[in-house]
Write a protein that binds this DNA or RNA. Structure first.
Length: 661
DNA sequence: GTACCGC
């Protein structure tokens, strides 16, 4: 509970937190709202009431009388909407007394050049080049890391050693050797102790590479399979560097010398992490809190739809690492409450999404048109499970001499996920869905994706009407409704959730056994991210998609994905593609607007200038080694260099594969 | 065209 400053208010807050955890779905409407980042992490809930429940199938409509408790609440979760106002959020009594302390944003309050004061008892501090840690606190440790015997949260569990078999490809100049264990060096000793508390035992492939890369001060574009530890892949090395290096050496301009009552309450974070949805942002923040525990680094989170006053108070108390959604961050920059002038690390999670049409202008504004240091004066890290090549071109603007890391198979889907494509006409979708939901094989949670918010509501209403314990999450629901839906899905109270793209990326929900694409997306990358909500951390899962003629646009890409993950390809799907090719004049999918010609983008476009290399299957990693990048390669794209690899120097200096399969 | 990103 890093937000508790005063000892006396800490207990009050923890009561709220407990209320939020134990009563998340039955909470009376009068109860105080607790935003997710002020609550105990979700795993406590799983631990307290989830495990036995979720392992088995949820009760069928026929036995629901026996389970009427969860039944009623699950219905009401969805039915009772709109009764809560987002405006009522926040309002904590533990108002920070930062004025007394005279520390705007925490740093340099006394003019020291090398000083970050202790903000509260749970926070460490930095002084004269020495990192001072806060005392250990059992209550906070339990809140952050769960009980020691809690196996649910073990990120290095049952099937994790499978990751040793995953091919890794790193390209760029002077790629550092990967690490094999969490050790110091290169990692900071204090980070190791937090990694220990979180019971991470072995680095995943993406972590093995990203840690030394960031340690070496390099920029990085990382493509890693869904569920393979990307969040820790950037948090570990970034926090490790901050722990070792301490705060920036020069104080932010102006305000340091003003009397405290005149200071603008502006925060100067060293790290900014951007992600495309509010829920993912919260999730990253929860992880950041774990690994920043007891250190001088104070993580904060800001996102839309929640009370801004509470977020302002939070960042006023010190903000070294900020996790944010773009819109709210822009708002806070406009209010002059956050400066990016001291940013050392810029992280874009789900980076391809952050740079596509919807987000690119905002990201460009944040990175290029505010006060963030230029590309040469910061470290930039991008992570995603997919990276279409046209987005890779865009990403060059934000990176310098970066290393491209590709973990997992070309399509970045996992063989842990059993994929099935069913031909279902629109009017049959409901009944086929009911058949699936009635199937006795169904275990764990079921996540159903649709294309529109309206359809999410309609389908959820339908399922609830059919006595299924369902909820829905989409962007037209209030933030509180979204969080309640996600909570009650996570803890198994409503083991069915209908979702739009808002839940497609990044969310780490334990025990999702089945992902159903009720509507297929138009973009294959969205499909890849969706099915990645299951089969996480080496576990198995299944994914079903309803396909009909309206989806023929992604049929070709879909087949490629299935083949790469060694999945069965229905023959009718193949014939639809053939038929489609005939009518469209042989091009198949090559001429689409995004112009990436069926490349799923987990390959470095600098190495694979051509667009069709992937037809050969997944086994054609380029094995060149030779000169550096042809510097005009970038500029010549779209001109003519795509005619063949031999007409440019081989842009590979280093290539490494840990193993092969 | 849809969804996601602030008030």
């Amino acid at each position: 509970m890093s937000n508790a400053t005063n000892n006396n208010s800490g207990s009050l807050e923890s009561k709220f937190a407990r209320l939020g955890v134990n009563n998340s779905d039955n909470r009376p409407q009068t109860s105080r709202y607790v935003p997710p980042h002020m609550r105990a992490p979700h795993h406590q809930e799983e631990q307290s009431n989830g495990r036995g429940n979720m392992g088995s199938t949820w009760s069928k409509p026929t036995d629901r009388a026996v389970r009427s408790d969860s039944w009623q609440s699950s219905r009401s979760d969805y039915g009772r909407s709109g009764g809560w106002s987002d405006k009522s959020m926040g309002g904590y009594s533990n108002r920070p007394n930062f004025y007394e302390r005279g520390s705007y944003g925490g740093k340099y309050a006394r003019g020291d050049q090398d000083y970050v004061p202790r903000r509260d008892e749970s926070q460490g501090y930095w002084k004269n080049g020495v990192h001072h840690f806060a005392a250990r606190n059992p209550r906070i440790e339990h809140e952050l890391f769960g009980a020691p015997e809690d196996v649910d949260r073990q990120h290095t569990g049952i099937n994790f050693e499978k990751y040793d078999d995953i091919p890794v490809e790193a390209s760029g100049t002077d790629v550092p050797e990967p690490i094999t264990q969490f050790t110091s060096p290169p990692l900071d000793q204090h980070l190791l102790s937090n990694i220990d508390l979180a019971r991470y035992t072995t680095p995943t492939p993406v972590q093995k590479y990203s840690i030394p890369i960031v340690e070496a001060g390099r920029d990085l574009m990382a493509c890693a399979q869904t569920g393979s530890g990307k969040t820790a892949g950037f948090l570990f090395p970034v926090l490790s560097k901050l722990f070792s290096d301490g705060p920036i050496a020069s104080a932010p301009p102006q305000e340091g010398n003003r009397p405290s009552y005149l200071r603008t309450k502006k925060a100067y974070p060293s790290v900014i992490i951007l992600s495309p949805t509010r829920e993912l942002t919260c999730q990253i923040y929860d992880e950041a809190r774990k690994f920043a525990y007891r250190s001088w680094v104070r993580p904060c989170v800001v996102y839309g739809g929640a009370d801004i006053g509470q977020q302002l108070r939070q960042i006023e108390r010190g903000c070294d690492l900020l996790v944010a959604t773009p819109g709210r961050l822009v708002d806070l920059i406009e209010r002059a409450r956050i400066s990016l002038s001291q940013i050392k690390y810029l992280v874009l999670d789900e980076a391809d999404r952050m740079l596509d049409m919807g987000f690119e202008p905002q990201i460009r504004r944040i990175v290029e048109q505010e006060d963030m240091p230029g590309v040469e004066d910061r470290i930039t890290l991008m992570f995603s499970a997919t990276f279409p090549r046209d987005i890779q071109y865009l990403a060059r603007d934000f990176l310098k001499e970066y290393i491209f890391l590709s973990v997992g198979r070309v399509g970045s889907t996992s063989e842990n996920i059993t994929q099935k494509i069913e031909y279902v006409e629109d009017e049959d979708k409901r009944s086929v869905l009911l058949d699936i939901l009635h199937s006795s094989e169904l275990t764990g949670l079921t996540l159903i994706f649709v294309e529109t918010k309206r359809m999410a509501d309609m389908l959820c209403d339908f399922l609830v009407g059919q006595n299924f314990p369902a909820t829905a999450i989409h962007g037209d629901r209030t933030q509180r409704e979204r969080e309640r839906a996600l909570d009650s899905f996570r803890n198994g109270r409503t083991p069915i959730m209908v979702a739009t793209a808002v839940a497609a990326r990044g969310l780490d929900i334990a025990n999702v056994g089945h992902v159903i694409s009720y509507d297929l997306p138009t973009d294959i990358d969205d499909y890849v991210h969706r099915i990645g909500r299951t089969g996480r951390a080496g576990n198995t899962g299944s994914a079903t998609a309803f396909f009909n003629r309206g989806n023929k646009g992604i049929a070709g890409d879909l087949i490629d994905i299935l083949k790469e993950a060694n999945q069965e390809v229905p023959s009718w799907l193949e014939s639809i593609v053939r038929e489609n090719r005939m009518y469209s004049g042989g091009g198949g999918r090559g001429g689409r607007g995004r112009g990436r010609g069926g490349s799923f983008g987990s390959r470095d476009f600098r190495k694979y200038p051509q667009q069709q290399q992937q037809q050969n299957g997944g086994d054609n990693w380029y094995r060149g080694n030779g000169g550096g990048y042809a510097s005009d390669m970038y500029n010549s794209y779209g001109g003519g260099y795509g005619r063949g690899p031999s007409n440019t120097s081989v842009p590979v200096q280093y290539q490494n594969k840990t193993s092969w399969f």
